[in-house]
Design a protein around this nucleic acid. Sequence first.
DNA 1: TTTATTTTGTAATAAAACTACATTAAACTA
DNA 2: TAGTTTAATGTAGTTTTATTACAAAATAAA
Lengths: 286, 286
Amino acid sequence: MSTSNLLTRLTAALPELNKSEVKVANAILENPEAATRSSIAVLAAAASVSEPSVNRFCKRFGATGFPDFKLQLARSLVSGVKYISRAVELDDSIDTYPRKLFDNTISALMLAKESLPLPAIERVVNHLSQARRIHFFGLGTSAAVAKDAEHKFFRFNVPVSSHTDPLMQRMLAASGGVGDLFFCISHTGRTQAIIEAAELARKTEATVVSLTCEASPLATHSHVVIGLDNKENTDDYLPMTSRIVQLVVLDVLAIGVMLQRGEGFLPHLARIKASVKNTRLPDDSD
Amino acid sequence: MSTSNLLTRLTAALPELNKSEVKVANAILENPEAATRSSIAVLAAAASVSEPSVNRFCKRFGATGFPDFKLQLARSLVSGVKYISRAVELDDSIDTYPRKLFDNTISALMLAKESLPLPAIERVVNHLSQARRIHFFGLGTSAAVAKDAEHKFFRFNVPVSSHTDPLMQRMLAASGGVGDLFFCISHTGRTQAIIEAAELARKTEATVVSLTCEASPLATHSHVVIGLDNKENTDDYLPMTSRIVQLVVLDVLAIGVMLQRGEGFLPHLARIKASVKNTRLPDDSD
DNA sequence: TTTATTTTGTAATAAAACTACATTAAACTA
DNA sequence: TAGTTTAATGTAGTTTTATTACAAAATAAA
């Protein structure tokens, strides 16, 4: 399983190959796309060599055989067209910018998925499921994230609140005690109001958890940090992808708590779901 | 040569397939990586169907046959994500469920991206940028979405508010006039309070826009609808992927409005960004 | 229930890939 | 240079894999 591109490897190896192998390599490089579609016979003919020569060639490059080689080739052909976050330009039209935005969000999530701080997540899940009270703090864009978190966690039978007022946050933080969990959300980790609230809470018996960017001031004032990288070149004017990642991380935490509660807890969730039934018009399907 | 990802297409087509085809699709989605390596016989066995069934399946998805299908599959796997919605199971561990959740969200976004109602989006962008006042209405999970939208659209120099109180919503809706834009957000499109608010607003000179699921009661009471499919089998107990899609659609709308305002508007956004600078600790980088 | 239609599977056929072995070419040795 | 060894390539047969034609179920319609 080589990390580098197969086509590059092919070109690089060219001088060390023997006659027929060079022929095969050239035939492939001539039209790699076509090569992925051809049978061993067709490719052998194109390279004017015998079929076993092609087969040997494939094995030489680490494949188990010709079909496997084609698979690798197909893979390396797309890898060049991988998802790149492309900034929206002023001359973008309705046919371009919506998809660009979705792509950016998707790739942000893909990146975040790769570098998920699982140990921290696990610790936070433990804190959350043992907490006697949970306070979500966020300002600006993170206020909406905090609100969303509140909506999710209240289902776990714990008193939950979200606060966007810095004064309220300070007062609550200062009066924290054992079992209180302060969950601070900040994209930059540099918002003073939140940092101060975290500081105040740290002086009490409460637990301070933060969802923010690594090695930020807020991070240093927390017991546990879920650190997300934020190389957000795309969010120049409007904050976008970062909060989506935060939301999904909060989903992960909620599911983590749910899984800890186990099967016996599902009826409780079902009851909550049922409770909103009569605020809705009947659905055709059920 | 389809532009969209094969895995996404597979998931999307799932409801329209017949028994054995569903079996094949699931076998592939279960482990797409393995599928690219298996022979038709192995895959047929894994899906407990006959080999010709697998073959027919491949042709149905535009491939010339099984090998060609495997090639396409290999190509779609390159981006590194498993575009499969796999529900979280009770025996999932920290090593599995976080990634599953990210994958589910990613695939929801990819699906949504494929079926984006661009004409509706364009119309809504026009309404938004011409509105003299914007009111975002949402309840439950959608309340957080409405809050997020408020945070984003206030940057456009228009009075924006978000409301989660049904009474407030009704009062505002009833007093709507020319230039007022009521933006209703509801995952199901069946929440009575929101529908009633939309009805009230429709009786005024105001414009009613909704972000909800297609062909729902709320949709019928709106001037313009941005319809999102919601085959949310993954959101059984906690609403998750649907709201993320809603948020990204709102990002799209915000960007759309921004693009309409044009280059001259960017300094304004920059000023807003600068205004929060002194609430933050200095950053090392800038 | 009977009949038409669709879906699925069986078995035969065709295609593709691989292996063992033979042949040729190249390199080395005397 | 001829003989010998070694590496490279090809041939032919074998095995695996994929496809096709057709028959049997299953499903839907009458």
